[in-house]
Design a protein around this nucleic acid. Structure first.
Lengths: 115, 115
DNA sequence: CTCATAGGTAACCAATAGGTTACATATTTG
DNA sequence: CAAATATGTAACCTATTGGTTACCTATGAG
């Protein structure tokens, strides 16, 4: 799919941010990104929690379409799908352009200084 | 504060993504961004839920440091703080640079096509 | 075939999130 | 001062989340 045709609706955006709102899941995502094609079992040693706990976090990432998988025999190969992150990145770049460019005041500092 | 000195720790990152993982809160953020200095009461008409509901969402945004406020008499003026978003934007730009640049395969398409 | 391995499902439980109503406080206005 | 306005807190309820143990299924290896 072409990068710029990928759009997230509100529900998908909810799912992506919700998925990212957990340290464990962000770590999972990093591990898979660093080891594309790894299988579920490869991930377990990195976590304290039970296998089922990891599986559930993985499911959340998959439902947010941040991770995709490919069944290979009795194993499942995991990959990060970057399109949702790129879609958010692109949208923010558009919406917050003035902010990114530093054209607007940093209002927090202004307030804290008593303006 | 200088843009590139602002860093989010893991707990702060949790809070930011959690705050963004709600349509209502993203809408709230958009409203405040579009009306900097607006007061709480200004926001209420845009929502179905009770005032307290809106206040709670607002609190979540404030705890994530995405919204800051300034007390003015009996009113409270609200502003978006863009630093957390910029920090995430910047971190992604670093970490996912290869992906942003489109240098890596789109693994999902590859998988769906049966590789 | 037998059994170990990789993975998944079901049912449950405690904690958190998202909302409510009722009440309280502080500030402006007449 | 009295009343209206702007906001905040407390207590409560329901649904969702994050985790568990126990059990089930499918595949690969000897």
């Amino acid at each position: 799919m072409r990068d710029d045709l990928y759009q997230l609706d509100e529900a998908a955006t909810d799912a992506v941010f919700q998925a990212l709102a957990s340290r464990e899941r962000r770590r999972l995502l990093d591990l898979i990104r660093g080891n594309p094609g790894c299988i579920v079992a490869d991930l377990l040693s990195a976590f304290e929690m039970s296998r089922i706990g990891v599986l559930k976090h993985l499911r959340v990432l998959e439902e947010a379409d941040l991770v995709v998988s490919e069944k290979a025999g009795r194993e499942r190969r995991l990959y990060v799908n970057t399109l949702p992150l790129r879609a958010i990145h692109r949208r923010w770049s558009d919406e917050f352009d003035d902010f990114w460019a530093g054209k607007l005041l940093d209002l927090k500092d202004k307030i804290e200084a008593g303006s």
